[in-house]
């Protein structure tokens, strides 16, 4: 049950519609873009709905609890209920905040994670846009998250928030380096930055890059967890130290935006891991998009598993780990793959 024919059908319908209206043909392309953007947005909301529930259930069962049980079957409506609650909440803007920056921080945060979805290959032929610099685009657009967290931390006019913002800036900028280097290994082998090309380079199970780049995958996974500010690298919001870090003053929908972005980022890094190392949509029997979702969900499971097992690192240890352990390893990985797979 591939989705490509559906898209083609929508495409022809749109073109005929535009022709019937007597509009230029680029208008059809514009419409397609808007449609794709809306579809991705809806998908993003669905993903967050699922992920929040998934994490709560998993964390519950890791701790021999049940997690949400009351809303719907095993609490599957819980996220919607929480979302409705957040919608209703008063949007508090504290007196002494920098209003403009305070307002835009969550928007930037959400927008940057959302924008990165443009190049996620959901399945064979299911990709909003196949940029030829896809992976580079993702790595650069997600960097905006740092700015938003810094904005939030600074504008809140709260010392805990400031500490959280500073921590997150230091952390994300640092971990960007090993993350990019670990991705480089894959790019060297595929000779392409396009997400589709990378997936297509992993035809069979044995040609998945996780086998050819195990060290690269490990580095990527660790750096990705750090990038998403999740435990054991969740120092920017470190509840026991900074109460809630950068989002301490946020409430209502603004908080929900940060929350959305956090889970979108979680999905994003897992999707990239799937694309780069786990063969993307490739897999037998099942339709390609389902394979993609399954693999991504598995990576998310692993990341959640980390979170509910490990304690949190300290801020200086985090930096030390990045620059003294991960970075040399990433370079080592690069050198090894340069030797082993020279074209």
């Amino acid at each position: 049950m591939e989705l490509t024919p559906l898209f083609q059908w929508i495409d022809t319908q749109l073109i005929s519609l535009v022709e019937w209206l007597g509009l230029p043909i680029w208008f059809a392309e514009l419409l397609e873009m808007v449609l794709a953007a809306v579809a991705v947005l809806l998908m993003a909301f669905l993903i967050v709905l699922f992920l929040v529930w998934w994490e709560r259930k998993l964390s519950g069962h890791f701790q021999q609890r049940l997690g949400p049980m009351r809303t719907g079957w095993h609490g599957w409506l819980q996220t919607i209920a929480d979302g409705l609650k957040l919608f209703q909440k008063e949007d508090i803007i504290p007196t002494n905040v920098d209003r403009k920056v305070f307002f835009w921080a969550p928007v930037v945060c959400f927008a940057s994670s959302y924008a990165a979805f443009a190049v996620i290959p959901w399945g064979e032929g299911v990709i909003p846009t196949d940029l030829n610099i896809g992976i580079l685009y993702i790595l650069s657009i997600t960097t905006f998250v740092v700015i938003s967290l810094l904005m939030a931390g600074w504008s809140s006019n709260n010392k805990y928030a400031l500490l959280g913002g500073m921590r997150s800036a230091a952390q994300i900028v640092s971990y960007e380096v090993p993350l990019t280097l670990s991705v480089l290994g894959v790019i060297m082998m595929t000779q392409s930055l396009s997400m589709v090309a990378i997936v297509e380079a992993q035809e069979s199970v044995f040609s998945w890059f996780i086998w050819r780049q195990p060290l690269g995958f490990a580095i990527y996974l660790v750096a990705a967890v750090a990038e998403t500010n999740r435990a054991p690298f969740d120092i920017p919001e470190a509840e026991q130290e900074l109460v809630a870090g950068f989002n301490i003053e946020y409430s209502g929908m603004k908080f929900a935006m940060f929350f959305l972005a956090e889970f979108l980022n979680l999905f994003l890094v897992s999707a990239i891991a799937t694309t780069l190392f786990l063969g993307g949509w490739q897999g037998p029997f099942l339709p390609s998009w389902l394979w993609f979702i399954l693999k991504t969900t598995f990576v998310i499971f692993v990341i959640i598993w980390f979170k509910w097992t490990y304690p949190r690192l300290r801020v200086d240890q985090l930096m030390e780990f990045c620059w003294k352990v991960l970075l040399p390893l990433a370079f080592l990985n690069l050198i090894i793959s340069g030797f082993l797979f020279r074209g």
């Binding site: 964390s59 890791f62 701790q63 021999q64 609890r65 435990a231 054991p232 969740d234 470190a238 026991q240 509910w308 097992t309 490990y310 304690p311 949190r312």
Partner: peptide, 12 residues
């Protein structure tokens, strides 16, 4: 362990 960020041992 909770203060160190590990939540699960707390529940155990």
């Amino acid at each position: 362990s909770l203060d160190l960020g590990a939540i699960t041992p707390f529940l155990y």
